[in-house]
């Protein structure tokens, strides 16, 4: 067993293999923002409380501020930058725009990612299921009414959200 201060790792980020050397105490959030320049992932609390840093790890939403990057090595990670395909917005992104599910926008990447993972698993959710699924994301502008509308509307687009 090796006990190391530096780790050479790779991640599969938004479909691309990214290799780099990291230190064990760097969080996944720090690596995404500071090493890889993926600043769509936001640091709101750094304590796994607010959800602004949510990314998908193996398609499940996690708080990247409270996951050691080294623990996620070799895994598939989706950030908000990876949702847009060929310049076309993801249906959940489009729905947040259409329904004003945004005020200041800081929490939005986290909400969109959490919602997209949820809609991958749940075809026709009830409003209550949407609330439960998004209960780990805080919007201090409290745009919750329109966030729920956005997610419900995206779910009604009738086709699978992601391939």
């Amino acid at each position: 067993m090796k006990i190391k201060k530096r780790w050479k790792v790779f991640f599969l980020i938004n479909g691309k293999r990214r290799s780099l050397t990291i230190e064990p105490h760097w969080t996944l959030l720090e690596v995404l923002r500071d090493q890889l320049g993926l600043t769509g992932t936001k640091k709101g609390c750094d304590r796994a409380e607010c959800g602004s840093c949510t990314v998908l790890l193996e398609r499940e939403p996690v708080y990247s501020c409270q996951v050691l990057a080294v623990q996620a090595r070799g895994q598939r990670i989706t950030t908000i930058e990876g949702l847009t395909r060929n310049g076309k917005l993801h249906p959940v992104q489009q729905s947040f725009i259409d329904h004003d599910g945004v005020q200041c926008g800081f929490c939005t990447p986290g909400f969109v990612l959490t919602a997209s993972a949820f809609l991958d698993r749940t075809r026709r959710p009830t409003p209550d299921q949407v609330k439960q699924a998004l209960s780990g994301n805080i919007c201090r502008c409290n745009a919750y009414v329109k966030i729920i509308e956005s997610v419900l509307s995206a779910s009604k687009r009738g086709k699978r959200i992601r391939d």
Partner: peptide
């Protein structure tokens, strides 16, 4: 179902 949040339950 009452415990923490979906993101915390995931890890």
């Amino acid at each position: 179902s009452t415990l923490a949040t979906p993101q915390i339950r995931a890890v």
